[in-house]
């Protein structure tokens, strides 16, 4: 398996959120500003990659009966490390993500990949799997954030980008105001908006997949007819 193929799988054909339907809670809860989305996505990417490597490294020595318990302990360990590091060095992010950082422990993506992929594959492939799946997760979060921020409050890149300061990593950037926030549909920044936005993204994904399948079918049909002729 090469990197390109894995990347395509992680981001599109086997996307953790849109195809495997895992880890929905955080996806809807924290995608209110680009800062949150990128921060959460990268945290999951790092934790996922570390857990993948660790699980893959010890896959031959752990007894099968208690493997889930061991996975959970390892995941909780990495999550706590990331949580503590964020609290210490990027406190703004830790504050705005709140309880959703420790809750990565029960994010089904991580235990799902450990169970379905890493306990059967060597370290190298598991490592790239962590990165590609993490990127797929981050991509969906970022798209959600962009849509909710833009339509909800007319902003782009809240927390991460500032008109005067450039890129801000401490979450103080006010973003670029594209239109007056009074005209935004502020329902999208509310919890309800999370459900609605994800619903529409899912629908768009399904429509696109269906269209692609139809095109393929038509092409096959055309080829068949050509053969017959």
């Amino acid at each position: 398996m090469n990197f390109k193929k894995q990347l395509k799988e992680g981001v599109i054909t086997n996307n953790p959120i849109l195809v495997q339907q895992l880890g929905m809670c955080a996806t809807m809860a924290i995608t209110t500003s680009l800062f949150n989305g990128v921060g959460m996505g990268l945290s999951v990417l790092i934790i996922l990659t570390c857990c993948n490597v660790a699980v893959s490294a010890i896959r031959k020595i752990i007894p099968d009966e208690i493997r889930l318990a061991i996975f959970v302990v390892i995941i909780a360990g990495f999550v706590t490390i990331v949580d503590l590091l964020l609290q210490a060095f990027i406190p703004a992010l830790s504050e705005s993500l709140g309880v959703f950082i420790p809750l990565i422990v029960v994010n089904c993506i991580i235990i799902g990949r450990a169970e379905a992929f890493c306990q059967k594959n060597p370290i190298g492939v598991s490592f790239t799997d962590g990165i590609t799946q993490g990127l797929g997760y981050t991509a969906v979060l970022v798209v959600m954030c962009l849509i909710r921020e833009f339509l909800g409050s007319g902003r782009f890149g809240g927390g991460l980008i500032d008109v005067t300061k450039g890129i801000t990593l401490d979450g103080t950037g006010t973003g670029i105001q594209l239109f007056n926030s009074d005209y935004g549909a502020s329902i999208l920044t509310l919890p309800v908006g999370g459900f609605l936005t994800l619903g529409f993204i899912f629908a768009a994904m399904q429509a696109a997949l269906k269209k692609a399948a139809k095109k393929k079918e038509e092409a096959a049909k055309a080829a068949e007819e050509e053969d017959a002729a």
Binding site: V192, G193, G194, F195, L196, G199, F200, A203
Partner: peptide
Amino acid sequence: ECFDGFPICLISAGLVALAFM
């Protein structure tokens, strides 16, 4: 048609959430 399955669930969950607001 493209809302079949999961998307329509999310949208209706959103509407129920709206009521809870």
